[in-house]
Amino acid sequence: MIYLDGIERVFQVGDEAVHALRDVHLEVKQGEYIAVMGPSGSGKSTLLNIIGLLDRPDRGVYRLDDVTATDLSDDQQAAVRRHKIGFVFQFFHLVPRLSASENIELPLTLAGMEPEERKSRVQAALKAFGLAGRAKHRPDQLSGGQRQRVAIARATIMEPKVVLADEPTGNLDRASGKDVIEILERLNLKGVTLIMVTHDPELGKRASREIHMVDGRIS
């Protein structure tokens, strides 16, 4: 489903060329649960961004569902992100002026879905993520765990095949972190491919496959 070959990503920092990714090869099957581990600066997030089509590799081939994603135009990539990929971020990235339900609704709105359909989907998601009583609350009125649950609901509302999580528990206490991991794992059990970047070896062990990265290479 996900096929990466010979991926290189170089950032220019001042005079120095930093190789964030060097000759990365990776294949992921539908429904896998992968933990990407490694020290900071090892290229974990860059790898995730490239899989999520937020960043383009300087060299190499990336195929998603037999479509060569690296050949797509910006707008086509946006469409792929919209329908196939869900992002969960360390800092949640909720829109502060929108309520929990409006944040969850946002991808549906951007996709131009009818309001009635949107409402029923958002209601279902609020229920499924235990946020029923929090629909009207703005992000600053929610706890960290609740915020991340809103973010996960938003990431999955379009029913993507892949969920990419960048340190989803990095900003949460242990209890709500565990809560969030369980939610993500439940999604994975339903067949969603889950790729998670984490520092935490304990979380890494829960995954069906661990990838360790050092200096932009998968070791």
Partner: peptide, 16 residues
């Protein structure tokens, strides 16, 4: 800025 980044991650094209 982060909101715009988020909109992009959610699949909003430039035009939108």
């Amino acid at each position: 800025t982060t909101e715009i980044g988020l909109l992009k991650a959610l699949g909003a094209p430039r035009r939108q």
